[in-house]
Amino acid sequence: MTDTQTLEQTAMRYRVRVFYEDTDASGVVYHANYLKYLERARTLWLEAQGHSHRSLAESHGIAFTLADAKLQFKQPARLDDDIEVLTTVADQRRARIIFEQTIRREKTVLIQARFTVACVRIHDFRPCALPELLQKEMQ
């Protein structure tokens, strides 16, 4: 099975319609907006696991911070496109989660991304272990 097939079968999906406010003067999605779509999809992934950023902050005193981002821009999304963000966990370590994400329009891949998200204590922003409950849910 290829990585693309694995992502397709295991990914959480988030649909987005491209609005005028998302685009530049030429009707193409402004590059920073892709980061917003990808962040929203990771937040929805977390919520699908039964958690929210707020609940983890309140119950465990943790937050997630972006440690690394790699994006490949393959093709642009345009005004009124219906696009889909696929999100899956590529790897999970003691204090971080590595996400693989793809933005596509139908079967056409627009963006491929890989994000490393670190778990940190809110009070000092130092790395810390993911809550055990969240670790188990990802296995």
Rank of each mutant, 00 (worst) to 15 (best):
P76D: 03
I98G: 02
Q101M: 04
Y20D: 11
E58H: 10
V16E: 11
R121G: 02
P131I: 06
I83Q: 05
S52D: 03
H53G: 09
I122R: 11
R78I: 08
R42D: 07
A63N: 03
L79H: 01
F125P: 00
K136W: 09
E132V: 14
G27I: 02
Q49H: 05
D81I: 09
T43P: 05
I103D: 03
V29D: 13
K36Q: 14
H31R: 06
Y20S: 10
D80R: 01
D80V: 00
R94N: 07
L7F: 06
R15I: 15
P131H: 06
M1E: 08
L66T: 11
T65H: 09
K70A: 15
G61C: 00
A48H: 13
G50L: 10
L35F: 13
T116D: 12
A25L: 13
V89I: 11
T102E: 05
Q101T: 02
D22T: 08
F115C: 11
C119P: 05
R40G: 04
T10D: 07
K70G: 12
D80H: 07
W45F: 14
D82Q: 08
V85M: 02
L71E: 09
N33L: 08
Q101C: 03
I98C: 01
Q112Y: 07
V28F: 09
L44T: 01
P127M: 10
K107Y: 06
R15W: 11
L7R: 15
H53P: 03
L7T: 12
T116H: 07
S52Y: 00
Y37A: 08
I97E: 00
Q101R: 05
D124S: 08
N33Q: 06
T43H: 04
R15A: 14
V117Q: 13
S26P: 02
R121Q: 12
R15M: 08
H51Q: 04
R94D: 09
E8T: 14
S59C: 06
Q92I: 06
R96P: 00
D24Q: 12
L38A: 05
K107F: 02
T88V: 01
T4C: 09
L35I: 10
E137G: 08
A113N: 10
R78Y: 11
